[in-house]
Design a protein around this nucleic acid. Structure first.
Length: 226
DNA sequence: TCATTAAATTGTT
DNA sequence: AACAATTTAATGA
C-alpha cells in the first residue's frame, strides 16, 4: 500500500473537506486528530458506543454491519480509503447503531466530537461538505433498498460495487479495489460463488475488470444503473 | 535470480 | 460445502 507511509497530517490535508477550511481551522484539526491501526477482524466501533469521534479511513477497508437478534450478521456497506463516517450519530447525539469492523488491517483517523461540532458551528464550507455527504449516502441506501427488492444477484453486486466507488463518499480512491471475491461477498450479501459469477457477468459486459484479488471499475455510471 | 513450497484466491461442481 | 486449479508470497540455495 502506497498510502501506508503518508503521515496523518498529510492524509488529513488531502481530504475533500480540508480544502474548505481556513488555515486556523485546519490547524486545530491537525492538533486534535489521532490515528489508530485496526487489525483485520477487529472493531473500530460497536453498536451502543457513545459517538465520541468522527472517523476517516486513511488506508484500508471497513464494513458497516449489524447483528440481528438471532445472531445473523447483516452488512450494510463498506468504507474504503478516503471515506469519512460516523457524523450521523454525533449530529443526533445518540449511540452508534452499527458495528464497524476492519476487513483487513486499516489505518483509521479519529477526530474528536468536540472538534467536529466546532467545525460544524464555525465553517459554512464544512456544512456544505456534510450536506453533500449525507445526500450521497442517502442515494446509496435508496439504491440498497431497491436492489434488495429485486432478486437479481448480478445487479446487487453491481450496485454494491458502484456504492463503494461513489466519488462523493470516496473522492481520492483509485478506480481499483484490492479485495477478494469472498470479502466482496460479505459486503454485497451474496455467497462467494454467486459473487464470482456476477463479477464475470459484469466483466463480460465491460463494466469492470476482475483480476486476482482485485477489481477495476471501467464504467461506474453503467454499474449504477445495471 | 531461480526453484520449491505454502498460503490465498478463484473456478467448478 | 467440497474440491481442483491458479496466483501470489515466502523461503532458501
Amino acid at each position: 500500500m502506497t498510502n501506508a507511509k503518508i503521515p496523518l497530517a498529510e492524509a488529513l490535508a488531502r481530504t475533500q473537506w480540508a480544502a474548505v477550511l481556513t488555515p486556523a481551522q485546519m490547524e486545530r484539526v491537525q492538533l486534535d486528530a489521532s490515528e489508530r491501526i485496526v487489525k483485520a477482524g477487529a472493531h473500530v466501533c460497536t453498536r451502543g458506543d457513545p459517538p465520541d469521534y468522527w472517523l476517516g479511513v486513511i488506508d484500508g477497508l471497513l464494513k458497516m454491519s449489524s447483528v440481528s437478534h438471532d445472531g445473523k450478521a447483516i452488512t450494510f456497506t463498506g468504507m474504503l480509503t478516503g471515506g469519512w463516517f460516523g457524523e450521523g450519530s454525533i449530529l443526533k447525539n445518540e449511540m452508534r447503531r452499527y458495528d464497524v469492523v476492519a476487513l483487513r488491517d486499516t489505518r483509521v483517523a479519529f477526530i474528536p466530537k468536540q472538534t467536529f461540532q466546532w467545525l460544524l458551528h464555525s465553517s459554512f464550507g464544512f456544512n456544505h461538505f456534510l450536506l453533500n455527504q449525507l445526500n450521497a449516502r442517502l442515494g446509496v441506501f435508496v439504491s440498497l433498498v431497491e436492489y434488495d427488492r429485486m432478486l437479481d444477484a448480478d445487479a446487487r453486486v453491481a450496485r454494491c460495487v458502484a456504492a463503494l466507488f461513489d466519488p462523493q463518499l470516496h473522492p481520492q480512491g483509485e478506480p481499483r479495489l484490492t479485495i477478494s471475491q469472498e470479502e466482496l461477498g460479505y459486503l454485497c450479501s451474496t455467497s462467494r460463488q454467486r459473487t464470482n459469477q456476477a463479477l464475470r457477468v459484469l466483466e463480460n459486459a465491460g463494466l469492470i475488470k476482475a483480476d486476482y484479488g482485485e477489481i477495476t471499475i471501467l464504467d461506474l455510471e453503467q454499474l449504477r444503473n445495471f
